[in-house]
Design a binder for these strands. Structure first.
Lengths: 222, 222
DNA sequence: TTGCATTTCAAACACTTGTATGAAACTATC
DNA sequence: GATAGTTTCATACAAGTGTTTGAAATGCAA
């Protein structure tokens, strides 16, 4: 197996290039040029371009998932097997937001790569994301333990909306900055996490009574 | 200008193919085959592949934006120049959700195309989306009129989260269905709109007092 | 009909892409 | 130090891409 030098040179060059320029216009030739290795090395070490991308994404997303589950476990243990709903949401969106937002995203290629992976949608990554359901189910289970009374569907919608806010903030961070003319501070990661968690909790807590048809005002029937 | 038959045949064939199979693996040759026209016709009538995609997307998104603004205007007129915040959110997310969700998404190629455009991210479409800021500013202005007291940043976050929930629901409808094992009814479009609007309103109404640092529980300093 | 502009067509062009090949260089074991 | 296995290398391959070309067909006005 020798030194693995070539292999890791490809991985880091690829991650950096994909992070900077997106999956769309980075070719294997770009990667091997940046890594100073031979073109054939990619297929030798990874089998194919898609498997290279998959390995990059799997590595990073496993790390995020591990971090999420650690936070969840800590919160559940602190609460005697039952975590507060806010702590659950915090464990869900915190690691992702911390990884992809804030000043880190200028420095960490890993974070910038994950942003790319969330903006562009390329087949090998999509395949992996589809297998993420099992991971999310663990959070659904924790929510069920935390809020035994709530309707199942409400829990899933809460989970879904929390992820929506987190991911959309990552995806559209530039547009939000431009739209708000800098008023929304995208560098205050902790503040953003607080905001997302707060809204998620409210969505779950507030929708309780009017769960079925939460209409606030009469609306025209159109 | 003759009959324009070729031109519109290309447009509708392209929209259908992109909707069904995504931008990634539909070539011009696929499109002209489906449209029964010559390969060169695309470049003759549209200039390039990207301009074809852009025209498709612009047409559909102009229609959605028009619908949004109509609803907004109606709501403001009904309220004497000041719409309720829930009506504003409804005007913002309603047209998109109605267009892309529900049974229509099996029938309407337009809706399926817009879903694709929101899932895959292809350069010509991204360029257009970036110009959408002006449109969103009109909603920010309406929100300002509706809630004169609120901090500007809060309004933008509210707008942002509302769009987050709507778009994420469209993007991840399949995953949400699978995750919730069918408990979340993605065909009840009106119910989904109500849900998104309710949460958006709550996010804006609830965050008022603790706007700056909405922490619900003590969190470890990590 | 004649002439002119628009539109269609088949074919080729130019280029990029990921992948395969087979020889060469290297490394470690005996 | 010979040998077997691993890794690197230059190069070629095959396929697919959007685009261009120049001629043929078509439509329309005078």
């Amino acid at each position: 197996m020798a030194s693995d030098h070539t292999r890791s040179a490809i991985l880091s060059a690829a991650e950096r290039l994909y992070a900077d320029r997106g999956f769309g216009d980075v070719t294997l030739r770009d990667i091997v040029a940046a890594a100073n290795v031979n073109l054939a090395a990619v297929n030798y070490h990874f089998g194919s371009k898609d498997e290279l991308i998959a390995e990059l994404f799997v590595t990073r997303s496993l790390a995020t998932n591990r971090e999420r589950l650690n936070e969840l476990k800590a919160a559940e243990e602190a609460g005697g097997g039952r975590a507060g709903i806010d702590a659950i949401f915090r464990a869900l969106v915190g690691p992702t937001l911390r990884g992809c937002l804030g000043p880190s995203s200028e420095g960490s290629t890993a974070a910038r790569f994950m942003i790319r992976a969330s903006i562009e949608s390329v087949p090998p990554i999509r395949r992996i994301k589809n297998r993420e359901v099992d991971h999310l189910r663990k959070f659904a289970a924790a929510m069920r333990r935390s809020l035994p009374g709530r309707a199942e569907a409400d829990l899933y919608w809460g989970l879904h909306f929390a992820l929506a806010m987190a991911h959309h903030t990552i995806r559209e961070r530039e547009r939000l900055t431009k739209l708000s003319e800098g008023l929304c501070d995208l560098d205050d990661v902790q503040g953003i996490i607080d905001r997302v968690v707060a809204v998620s909790v409210m969505a779950l807590a507030g929708g309780e009574t009017k769960a079925k048809a939460p209409r606030l005002v009469a609306r025209d029937g159109r």
